[in-house]
């Protein structure tokens, strides 16, 4: 579904991503793990054109989307749950959800019910300004907001960051549930253990390059991965 080839991204003179290639098959969960500053967020941001790649191609459902405008890419069915949640603090929870569907012109009732089913907490708090939600609630809102665009591919940048273990488990359950309902998922995580358990395929990224790949299960037992990312 998503094919990234030889992607390079520079910030000024710094090469943040140094020619990586990977694929996300339809209906799968793929995870990208790696240390701080490896270039994971940069990779996701370049897929939705928030940063322009220096070279390489990004193909989505057979179409070259490299360097297209962000809103065009979002319209094609890719969405990003950004690092740090980035919900709109001055908008209510309901407005945050509606703005996730900004590109759509059809009725939102079904989708609101869908995300409220996934996150009942958001329904209770639909009138509250986004900025007053707790960290975990904000993360739920960020995921729910992304779902409101009815994406084919949802990319999540560290959705479990800073959340209590129980909430982390909840988020991963939701990820699996969304995937079961047919949404393809590209997941970035610091929590390599959880991510690899959840994912079909994993890629390990180090300082701008992909150094290892395998199924989630393979990487979980890989010696190097265990030493570097699972603290064992």
């Amino acid at each position: 579904m998503l094919k990234v080839k030889d992607l390079k991204v520079n910030y000024g003179g710094i090469e943040a991503v140094k020619g990586i290639s990977f694929e996300v098959p339809e209906k799968s969960i793929v995870t990208l793990i790696g240390a701080n500053g490896a270039g994971k967020s940069t990779t996701l941001r370049s897929i939705v054109s928030l940063v322009k790649p220096a070279s390489g191609t990004i193909e989505f459902m057979g179409e070259n989307i490299t360097g297209k405008d962000t809103n065009e890419i979002v319209a094609k069915g890719i969405t990003l749950v950004p690092e740090g949640r980035k919900i709109f603090p001055d908008l209510t929870v309901l407005e945050n959800l509606k703005i996730g569907a900004y590109m759509r012109k059809d009725n939102l009732t079904d989708d609101l019910n869908w995300v409220y089913d996934l996150f009942p907490r958001l329904k209770e708090r639909h009138w509250q300004p986004g900025g007053t939600l707790s960290g975990g609630e904000q993360q739920m809102l960020a995921v729910a907001r992304a779902l409101m665009s009815r994406p084919k591919l949802i990319m999540m940048d560290e959705p479990s960051l800073g959340l209590a273990p129980l909430i982390v488990k909840g988020i991963f359950d939701i990820i699996k549930e969304i995937n079961r309902q047919g949404v393809t998922i590209l997941l970035i995580e610091q929590n390599a253990n959880m991510a690899l358990r959840t994912a079909d395929v994993g890629y390990v990224m180090e300082t701008g390059s992909i150094t290892m790949t395998g199924t989630g299960a393979e990487l979980l037992v890989n010696e190097q991965v265990r030493a570097a990312y699972l603290g064992k």
């Binding site: 939705v48 962000t70 950004p82 980035k86 900004y102 590109m103 665009s149």
Partner: peptide, 9 residues
């Protein structure tokens, strides 16, 4: 940036 992600021009 996040507005762009929502598809807002």
């Amino acid at each position: 940036e996040t507005s762009r992600l929502m598809g807002i021009k």
